[in-house]
Write a protein that binds this DNA or RNA. Structure first.
Lengths: 299, 299
DNA sequence: CGGTAAGTTGAATCTAGTCAAGAAACGTGG
DNA sequence: CCACGTTTCTTGACTAGATTCAACTTACCG
């Protein structure tokens, strides 16, 4: 769509508004503050109905870049549907995936400080995002003080997610990372109302590996191993989590998960069995997951 | 801040104020908004002199924890002097270092969303922090709209730093990580007015390794290798960077550094390019931005 | 000055990466 | 609907790099 490249025709002073207008034309839909807060899982304060602000949408087709690293910062984006990947790209063309933002996740926050996006956001499937100009958000916060913490909270959430990612990369081995990734996806999809134990991946092994700091072959092997162990069932991109507890056990063969993370994985209660063999399998169990772990695979 | 959680009033319902008072008693000094912005390298708007807000200081002795993971969130902290480490600690007691906040760096932001700090901040030497209650900051932003972006920017900066860390962990080998760490420290110290090529580490090999996702022996070996190669000179914790260019070359033997990061390392010539397809990785559109690399070792 | 913590170095082991081949899925056009 | 080429995924054998175990040296602190 035409709106796609709008940010290129000018290092825009007003192209933000143009994009907004155009998105309205195409989509014919704006999002209210209430809907935005719901999307972000942020409490909606009573007085917010006073606020008139509305947010435009934008549709992004598969493979299309929403923003590129280096682009001048203009807006934040909240995924409303679909799935993205955010990447760093180096001179030789290879890329490192930093996250897979999905519905409710924030994108573009890395551009606030420097004034330029530091990563590129590419759609993995046809998706829809809410355009949230920083200025609108600031005005919103001013007019409705109870919404002031909104962006603070979303940014903090993002920060914790990346921090958890750094923890995983620095601590876990290949199988642990893959297991954590699957659990994270599972929890996030569950929170969105989809099945927690059966879903389809939207990304290639290559992209998964890039995100997890592994090669695609290693990802494939890890998945195969988990499959063979009966913990999950893999067929290409279709994943079935057969034994979530065992999957968590793979992450943490010996209680090496920080309590702050573990609590969100449901394995905080005193663990006795130091179960050294990863292949060991226990009867399936259900798992409640909080907001930390699910963020591992986010934006 | 929000009227959040109250489960753990154990540690302190009013200890924030107590701490503040105590700091005042001991230090007898508060920090003005101007001084805070200077510390954070954020522009100080003209009208800000109107604002009365002042921030208390707190002294933290070596080895003392400023905040602990799980503590109820009350304030943000900005390091004014000294050096910290932020860590995740697991049940077995081993810890993963997430950052080494130094002068001007923010701590505690990971607690905003959940209402609890997710990491523990421990002082590596006697240090001083500015106590920045979120509520004060919110009021400040309200009274002085031009300061509204202050926290946004600081959080965004933090986010980029952790993102770069994730990149390094996922991409670089042992020597590359150590080299990047040293360059990062070098740049940060330089920005603070200290020598860029000669400094003392404040952390043990163990802590460095934990931060970089390596074992202490590996860190030691990497340092020795760089020393032998004549790129740096190491004697215990004293580091001299002999050949900064070579050090950058260690990170990136083959231009594998994303331009957005590389530019901050001084190894990016100008470039341009357009990239359209998701799977095809040719060039990318990247280039010079703000403080990226120096944040690698931060908070 | 002695004891402890921190750092260095070597050798063996193990994990993930690399190279390479083949199988399965996907899309396109006949 | 099927054949074809392309992409993605899987698997195996081998290699490189980091971890582990262990001995030893050096700094630091009372």
């Amino acid at each position: 769509m035409t709106a796609a490249m709008s940010h290129y025709d000018a290092l825009d002073s007003g192209s933000m508004d143009q994009g907004t207008a155009r998105a309205q034309d195409h989509e014919g839909a704006n999002l209210s503050v209430r809907e935005l807060t719901r999307l972000l899982h942020i409490d909606y304060p009573g007085e917010a109905w006073l606020v008139q602000t509305a947010f435009a949408l934008r549709r992004v087709r598969e493979g299309e870049a929403l923003v590129r690293a280096g682009d001048k910062f203009h807006s934040l984006y909240v995924v409303r549907s679909g799935c993205f990947k955010t990447v760093y790209t180096d001179l030789s063309g290879s890329e490192q995936v930093l996250g897979f933002p999905m519905c409710g996740d924030l994108m573009g926050a890395d551009g606030i400080d420097s004034g330029r996006y530091s990563s590129t956001a590419v759609s993995l499937e046809t998706s829809e995002v809410v355009i949230v100009p920083l200025a609108s958000l600031a005005r919103l916060a001013y007019e409705c003080p109870s919404l002031e913490a909104l962006l603070y909270r979303v940014l903090s959430r993002e920060l914790v997610r990346v921090q958890n990612m750094a923890w995983a990369l620095g601590t876990l081995g290949a199988e642990g990372r893959v297991a954590a990734f699957l659990l994270s996806l599972s929890a996030r999809l569950g929170a969105l109302g989809y099945s927690r134990c059966s879903f389809n991946l939207r990304m290639t092994r290559q992209e998964m590996g890039s995100y997890l700091g592994l090669k695609l072959e290693t990802v494939s092997r890890a998945l195969s191993a988990l499959n063979t162990a009966g913990i999950i069932q893999v067929h290409q991109r279709s994943i079935d989590i057969v034994d979530a507890a065992a999957l968590r056990g793979v992450i943490d063969p010996a209680a090496r998960v920080p309590a702050s993370i573990a609590s969100h994985l449901g394995l905080t209660p005193p663990r006795s069995g130091v179960d050294k063999d990863r292949r060991s399998r226990k009867p399936g169990s259900q798992f409640p997951c909080g907001p930390v772990w699910r963020q591992l695979a986010a934006a």
